[in-house]
Amino acid sequence: MDVSKLSLDDLISDMAARVDERIRSFAEQTPVMVGIHTGGLWIAAAMRERMQTEIPLGELNIAFYRDDFSRIGMHPHVSPSNLPFEVEDRHIILVDDVLYTGRTIRAAMNELFDYGRPARITLAVLIDRGGRELPMHADICGKTLSLKAGEHVKLSGPEPLALVVKENG
């Protein structure tokens, strides 16, 4: 499918509404939003503007938690994670742009637990493109795509946000 025809604005508004609903159904837990650097953070910020609930936003950079350090080494520029709130006992809305193998989410959850014990984690992603290698699923998903092997979907942004599908061999 042609991803450039997708209205990201509609997808994000729809996700924001479902995050609001999710927060209401666990009203006894204080919600916070955490975007995964960089695409996840852009989506989180865009959703936050459209949500009814006021919610603090943090940024997670999972570079130090990746499982491929021994194969690819250090990422050249790692901006520090910034969670300006307690993680302990919070309802965390974890946001990423694309859900693929599930390894990023594994790394993100490991890092979150090093800040404290969340009461609940809700995973919200803009695109689920399949191809999972770990048992992860998104609670809230903007759009499911089925891509061919060797195809990758990438988000560019933050202004404007745009999706492209790239071949790489």
């Binding site: 130090f64 350090f69 250090m74 050249p76 520090p80 302990e88 490991n110 890092e111 090093d114 800040y115």
Partner: peptide, 23 residues
């Protein structure tokens, strides 16, 4: 400069509940 950049990323680890990363 890249050593200084990486040090900046690691500086926050000491302030967390678990002062470790699994690198």
């Amino acid at each position: 400069l890249s050593i200084l950049d990486h040090a900046r990323s690691f500086a926050g680890v000491g302030d967390r509940a678990v002062k470790k990363v699994p690198l």
